[in-house]
Amino acid sequence: MSTPTAGRAPFWVRLLFAVTLCMPIIEVVVIVLVWQVIGWWTLVALAACFCLGLVVIKRASVGAAREMRSAMAERRPPAREVADAPQALVGGVLLLIPGFVTSLLGIILILPGMRSVSRRLMQAVVGRRMAAGGVHVVDYTATRTDSFRNDPEVIEAEIIETDEDRKKP
């Protein structure tokens, strides 16, 4: 078994690059095959996928922002919202790209069942990295008195003075 060299990309990066280079050819072949079956309706289907992509992107961004605001108002971490929004946005972008293969991938990504699968996958990857020491979680939450709770102008901070700071004139 060979070890990867410093200048060589991992296998999954090389595979993604190869698929990205081949995707336009694959899309043209699929569009031609669909054209032979349904004719001019192919253009209508491509336009419908594009419009669906616009709707998905708008709803995902507005919905994620609303859900994150409500999570912050309830003083709970917006873990689900943070995990779901990028997937819906990527699905919407894939729907915008003209072609049936990318549209199919986009539709798969925006399905609610797939969101839970990818959320579990993301949690496993992040959990593995945290266990390996690759991610450091810092808790910046602070308790505040009720009088300042809804005041956006108030920023709580703690000033830490070191010996070097005291020596400076």
Score class of each variant (00 low, 15 high):
P98G: 02
V90R: 06
Q123W: 04
L21N: 10
V32F: 13
S70L: 13
P78C: 06
N150W: 10
F50N: 13
R120L: 07
V126M: 04
L95K: 07
R75E: 14
V125C: 04
V32A: 12
R120N: 09
S70Q: 14
E81Y: 15
K167C: 04
Q36Y: 10
A64I: 05
L104I: 01
F11N: 13
I110G: 04
W12G: 12
I159K: 03
L43D: 03
I110M: 08
G7K: 06
P77F: 14
T20W: 09
V135M: 05
W41A: 12
V62S: 12
L21Q: 09
V44Q: 00
M68C: 08
V32G: 07
R80V: 08
A73F: 09
V82P: 00
A65L: 14
A6Q: 10
S147A: 10
P86S: 09
R120E: 04
M122W: 02
E81A: 15
R69P: 05
T3C: 12
V90M: 13
G113L: 11
R59E: 15
A83M: 09
V29H: 07
C51P: 02
V56C: 12
D84N: 10
I57G: 14
R128C: 02
Q36W: 05
G113K: 11
I159C: 01
W40T: 15
C51E: 05
E74G: 11
A142L: 12
P78V: 01
I25V: 14
A157Q: 03
Q87S: 09
A79N: 09
F148Q: 01
D165N: 13
G113E: 10
G134L: 02
S70M: 11
V29F: 09
R115C: 00
D146Q: 06
I26K: 02
M122T: 15
L104K: 00
I155Q: 08
R129H: 15
T20N: 01
R166H: 12
L95H: 11
Q36I: 12
I97Q: 00
I108H: 00
A9E: 15
M130F: 04
P77C: 04
G92R: 08
P98D: 00
I108C: 07
P4E: 04
V56Y: 04
E81R: 02
D151A: 00
A79Y: 11
N150Y: 14
H136F: 06
R128T: 13
R8F: 08
V154I: 07
L54E: 09
L89M: 12
A157N: 11
S147F: 12
F148Y: 07
A157P: 01
E156N: 00
R166I: 15
L43S: 08
R128K: 10
L109V: 01
L95A: 07
